[in-house]
Amino acid sequence: MSSLTREDVEKVSLLARLRLSEDELTKMTEQMSQIVNYVELLNEVNTDDVEPMAHAVEQYNVFAEDVPHQSLPREAALANAPKSDSECFRVPAVLGD
């Protein structure tokens, strides 16, 4: 079917928020192509009228009641943050928004 190009892989790396070096891109293109070619094995299966199966077990209507629980103390919420102030998580300026 489709063959995976380096440009495809580069585009995917942006979607996936991964920065790949030139070498990594080359290797990734090669390995992904190999795997994608393999999984195209599925094309030989007739799946007309087959319902997709997204869950291992079919369950429906799992709800919780609308009763508040205790939230985490703020210090605990922020404890693992790479960068924070006394109140908030901090990230580089989001431009143009």
């Binding site: 919780a64 508040p68 629980h69 939230s71 985490l72 703020r74 919420a77 109140e87 908030c88 998580f89």
Partner: peptide, 19 residues
């Protein structure tokens, strides 16, 4: 089941799920 009350001090209405 974190509260949805408006106007709370930042990051005081969170838990592992909504974080």
């Amino acid at each position: 089941r974190c509260s949805t009350t408006f106007g709370a001090s930042p990051n005081t209405q969170t838990c592992p799920v909504c974080l």
